[in-house]
Design a protein around this nucleic acid. Sequence first.
DNA 1: CTAACGTACAACTAAATGGTTGTAGGTAGG
DNA 2: CCTACCTACAACCATTTAGTTGTACGTTAG
Lengths: 123, 123
Amino acid sequence: MQTLDRPDLIGDDEVDSLFHALADTTRRDILRRSAAGDLSVSRLADLYPMSFAAVQKHVAVLERAGLVIKERRGREALVCTDQAAVRRARLALDHLEATWRARVDAMTGLLDEDSEQRKGAAR
Amino acid sequence: MQTLDRPDLIGDDEVDSLFHALADTTRRDILRRSAAGDLSVSRLADLYPMSFAAVQKHVAVLERAGLVIKERRGREALVCTDQAAVRRARLALDHLEATWRARVDAMTGLLDEDSEQRKGAAR
DNA sequence: CTAACGTACAACTAAATGGTTGTAGGTAGG
DNA sequence: CCTACCTACAACCATTTAGTTGTACGTTAG
């Protein structure tokens, strides 16, 4: 079911919008509630203490970030969270951690080289 | 309406600031470069096409999100990314995914019940 | 057909963000 | 000592964001 296993690298702008979309409690809640894809924007809007238009904008942010898709069903738009999206977020985190761990390893590598040198000098 | 107060989970505001801090290319780069904890704010500022104060603000955002700590060494402040921080981000993603997967499972559970019924009513 | 519903979008406000410059104070090197 | 460096922070500006209301338009129900 996963459209994965491809080393699809994500651009900086995409990661920006991804994390920005996730950086809001209401939007994260919308994500959770839209898992089943059976809620329209109006039904979602009923759940929050803000106007319909405000919720509509939140959904738009999530949509631009690729976290949800809207499927038009008659006069209503059903919101459905993209299963692969969180995977992309996780990939971004993985990449971030990998890069910086590489730097740490590079430094400890230098330190090891240093001790290797000391070892070599002792030899 | 109710927020889950599990002991190992992070509050909404913390997740907000966490993801918000991650939603900026410069800040993610600072995070990577500060892995070894050997760069001061000034040295970091040299790496970006913006003023020292701007970088200082980015570091402050990361610091408020708990992603880095500043260790004062003499007249300079060494920036060091907190190793546990990305783990917290990952936990937040895990929790998000878990919650919504629970909803999906609940729905597919209903569907399964439905197919069980159909199976039982098989002609 | 008409009325009600759901959505889209525009215009507006208040507040937050990302950037700038300037100033003040602590610390180190010469 | 004193000068240069590093940091902290304030004030300001432009842009974006999160919210509002209002309006227009397609779709469904009665």
